[in-house]
């Protein structure tokens, strides 16, 4: 303190405060500088819309991976969003405070379980069930959707709970005083007021699902194709990067970074939407 003085401290703190944003810029810079030249060279149309991915013959079409990522993510939403929102509503509006106190951190623990463990459960438990009952290889789009759906639950639940609890008590009391049942109050008043926060939780869940790598590699089968059914084996954008990165060189490696560029852009768009939604929620408060 004596060495640098009050102004010096402030300057040092400000410089360190730029660490997060400069990391972000550095990440963008390096991913883009590795990936963008490839996209220009190869042609964005060829890269994004072609169906064939065969690095050995120089074919780098990621359309199947894009479709697979979209389907896996949407499927995960179908599994995770209703469960998560229902859980959030129950915990914040119906459960006693003690249950909330125990269950909320327990569910948040779900977020701490490593994604490889989820993947492993998918391989050992879920895939055989799918194979034996529904047919197909088991490691499939469906398995990916279910595992990812479970993985996004904590995100959806905890952000939704925060939004629901942020709704002023007086709204609810007003509705109950008019003779509404608690459920009528919940779905006509509370959920409406918490809407933007709930939307944000779903979008952040979307971001988590589309970016998830290890669990998807383990359960989704990884064949490059546009899925025709939920039982098909699929390969997502993230899986494509992780599977081939360790041995890729030259054009092939550039193509993987270009895949990263696409992923980065998608995530940034989703994050921006979510942060606008959360800001709406906070503004309303």
């Amino acid at each position: 303190m004596k060495l640098v003085g009050e102004k010096g401290v402030q300057r040092i703190l400000m410089i360190t405060a730029l660490s997060a944003i400069s990391s972000l810029l550095l990440i963008a810079l390096f991913i883009f500088s590795e990936g963008l030249p490839f996209i220009f060279k190869y042609g964005a149309g060829n890269f994004l819309l072609a169906n064939e991915w065969d690095p050995n013959t120089g074919h780098f079409g990621i359309f199947p991976m894009i479709m697979s990522s979209v389907w896996v993510t949407l499927g995960a939403m179908v599994v995770g969003a209703p469960l998560g929102i229902a859980g959030a509503i129950f915990l914040s509006e119906y459960a006693s405070p003690i249950i909330m106190k125990i269950v909320k951190p327990t569910i948040e623990l779900l977020a701490a379980i490593p994604s490889v463990v989820y993947g492993f459960i998918g391989v050992m438990v879920l895939a055989p069930v799918i194979r034996n009952n529904l047919g197909g290889p088991g490691l499939s789009l469906l398995a990916g959707c279910i595992i990812l759906g479970i993985m996004i639950l904590p995100t959806v639940i905890s952000i939704s709970i925060d939004s629901i609890l942020a709704v002023p008590r007086s709204y609810r009391e007003g509705s109950l005083a008019l003779g509404a049942t608690t459920w009528q109050t919940t779905h006509m008043v509370t959920i409406k007021a918490a809407r933007s926060g709930i939307v944000a939780s779903i979008i952040l869940g979307l971001g988590r699902a589309i970016g998830e790598t290890m669990a998807v590699i383990m359960v989704a089968g990884n064949s490059v194709n546009i899925p025709n059914s939920a039982l098909d084996s699929v390969r997502t954008l993230t899986a494509n990067i992780a599977l081939e990165m360790s041995y890729a060189t030259g054009m092939h490696r550039e193509a993987l970074f270009a895949t990263g560029v696409i992923l980065f852009i998608i995530i940034m768009i989703l994050n921006s939407i979510a942060s606008v939604a959360i800001r709406n929620r906070n503004a309303k408060k």
Binding site: L24, L26, I27, I31, I210, G211, I241, A242, I267, A274
Partner: peptide, 13 residues
């Protein structure tokens, strides 16, 4: 934004 970046991107970077 940094919080939302998937780990595979961190790996690439």
């Amino acid at each position: 934004c940094l919080a939302g970046i998937p780990s595979i991107i961190f790996g690439l970077f």
